[in-house]
Design a protein around this nucleic acid. Sequence first.
DNA 1: TTGTAAGCGTTATCAC
DNA 2: GTGATAACGCTTACAA
Lengths: 344, 344
Amino acid sequence: MLVKKPTINDVARAAQVSKRTVSRVLNGSASVGEETRKIIEKIIADLNYQPDKQARGLASSRSYFIGIIYDNPDALYIDQVQRGLLDVCSRQGYELVVHPCKYDSPSLVEDCLAFVGRSKLDGVIVLPPVSESKVLAAALREEGHPYVRMASLDLDDHTNIVVSDDRTGVRQMAAHLVGLGHRDIGFITGPMHYHSSTERFEGFCGALKDLGLPIPEGRIAHGKNNYQSGLECAHTLLAGEGRPTAIFANTDEMAAAVLKVAHELGIKVPEELSVCGFDDNILASRIIPALTTIRRPVTDMASLAAQKIISAIEDKEEKAIRVNYIVQPSLIIRESTSQWPGSE
Amino acid sequence: MLVKKPTINDVARAAQVSKRTVSRVLNGSASVGEETRKIIEKIIADLNYQPDKQARGLASSRSYFIGIIYDNPDALYIDQVQRGLLDVCSRQGYELVVHPCKYDSPSLVEDCLAFVGRSKLDGVIVLPPVSESKVLAAALREEGHPYVRMASLDLDDHTNIVVSDDRTGVRQMAAHLVGLGHRDIGFITGPMHYHSSTERFEGFCGALKDLGLPIPEGRIAHGKNNYQSGLECAHTLLAGEGRPTAIFANTDEMAAAVLKVAHELGIKVPEELSVCGFDDNILASRIIPALTTIRRPVTDMASLAAQKIISAIEDKEEKAIRVNYIVQPSLIIRESTSQWPGSE
DNA sequence: TTGTAAGCGTTATCAC
DNA sequence: GTGATAACGCTTACAA
């Protein structure tokens, strides 16, 4: 093989037109004769011609690449997002370039800017928690790079963000727990400098308060969203007398840790303790007992984000704002929560 | 901001040389005067000049993008591989473009070729099970696209592959189980048209046979590597009288399913049944009881694959072959396997 | 509706 | 060792 790929010139020659006209067809310009267009399209198909992205990009200063920036330990989440984005992007001729990074690094902004710059990415999707960085967003905007943030909180104008309404999600969980008769509920937070953590925490506390059940200080443990910290928090919450009858963890990872510790301590879940998490990642359904949790509509968010970024790239922000920007989590009830006092 | 980025021409002008000379410096050509080089390098630094990848690519027909092709349900594995690859690639100036696909699709080859072609990827890394496709590899080679396959079996020349020695891995598991006193062991296979499945299955059976313990037909269940099929296989293996004392599943996902079914059936693990898996994915350490399994050295493989592909791209296959191509899995003993008859 | 010609920012060919 | 100058394959003013 290795025959040289056809260029726009080959197409033009075969169609007996100038390459300018072929270019018009390629870009869907209106001002091409019906006849001519037909002929050119046929030849393109016959030759199996594909425009060269690099040349195209060089001329139009675009790359047809979209970046995805994240620093998230939850691989499943990343994977889902990637697939969701790709679903939309590849249909529109964009490819996805990945960029894991360190949210806490002092060079985060510089690093991300370099990433976008060196490959002339047409735009970037930023995942939580990196998406919460005000400075990064400002820098991207400043440099004129289209971006869309995925977050748990409405912290940018609706052209540039897709948010999952975590606050409403945790309210459902509060209602669920209280509905089961729980009156003494513990909470394991995420890192409190993440908006997602405070949203969930405050949303949950607020809901409980509305139901007349404030969480006492002693029932709150501060975790880091990961398994290890979940283990530690579970210990502090479950050690000693008078433990809570239910624990809500900020992530499934930490909820899994609670299950583990409860198991070690001989506390039966859900009979003696209800446990629930947030995310609905793969762990949630596999673990025993299966976890009651809140599902983040990841794929929906990704799909919206992709539409937004492409609109922003192609229509200069005109259409992007029309794409919906908010999405609702949903309560998934499984085996780890039950009636209190224990129904078994 | 939005000041136009400096080009090679700006550098040339400032240095009072032709752009050809700047280009030489950029590409580390030997034939540039020591003086001249110093001057140019300083100016490059001062201007914070970065060569434009697109233009570079257009001229040299390279893209500085490496693709990664996969169809794998295990998000954690994908994520680990991506990070492993990126670790090496980004240091060398390459970006990673992702491409999930359908291994069983009739258009797999066409689809992947289009992926590589339309973005002029410099090379691709192919993950299992897609990496097992002979036709895809042949097509890639035919078209002159550098590629590296990650697999469980040595099925290409060592320039183009990185393999994990699954066969040796499962042997360790066999020894472990038999060492614990198990004599009646069940096995849940993966899809038998995957080389990885047959490698593990045959490796395990072979090891058992060597120890004088052939697996009877009735102790074998054919799964699909996913949780759902694991559930089904576990049922057939554990239903009725005279169940095996240990079950080895081809993946952790399926092993998790065995745990689930055992739990439902009231069979205690590991006291009444030992269970083990393969992969050491996140599930393995989170689940209760924590899973004894075989760890695939994913990061190592990814790192080797990255080195190989870059060598192939830059040195025209000369150095790639010198990079090691085989990597050893290791046995991770946790809580799901124990002495038989039960030691508790 | 269609064509001409000038870039886009590099690398590559050949002289000098 | 260095420098004109021509590619690379496309888009886009500007004409026609």
